[in-house]
Amino acid sequence: MVSESLKIAGTERSPEIEFDFERGFLRFRGESYPEDASAVFGPVFVALDRFLAEAGGREIQAEFDLAYFNSSSAKALMNIFLRLDSAAAAGTPVSVRWLHAPDDDTMREFGEDFGEDLDHVVFTLVAADPAG
């Protein structure tokens, strides 16, 4: 039985991260340019690996609502996408929503680039005004 969840409050330079195991819902929101990206994203890798090991192929819905991230955060995000894509290849249904502000070409392009690299995840780009 998977019951634990991960919830990390956002800071000035790191995103709010929520992983609700019950719903299989993973969300990143805010900005990400911490000094040490591995310290911020490390717990997500651990939680994701545990969820995938214990959840027996249950669906994952992930939402990325990021306004800005630096290059080391981009590497961490790629790492998460690679894990999600291999889980999807092994039969776990995975859907990703990538949110960007309608006039933010940089974040839209990042979304397109990540989406192109994923073969098994259902990837959707969503142009939306940032949540309050």
Partner: peptide, 16 residues
């Protein structure tokens, strides 16, 4: 907004 984002990004990467 595009220019603000680009300048900010270069500033952050250079400073880090």
């Amino acid at each position: 907004i595009g220019t603000v984002k680009k300048v900010f990004s270069v500033f952050i990467e250079q400073s880090q």
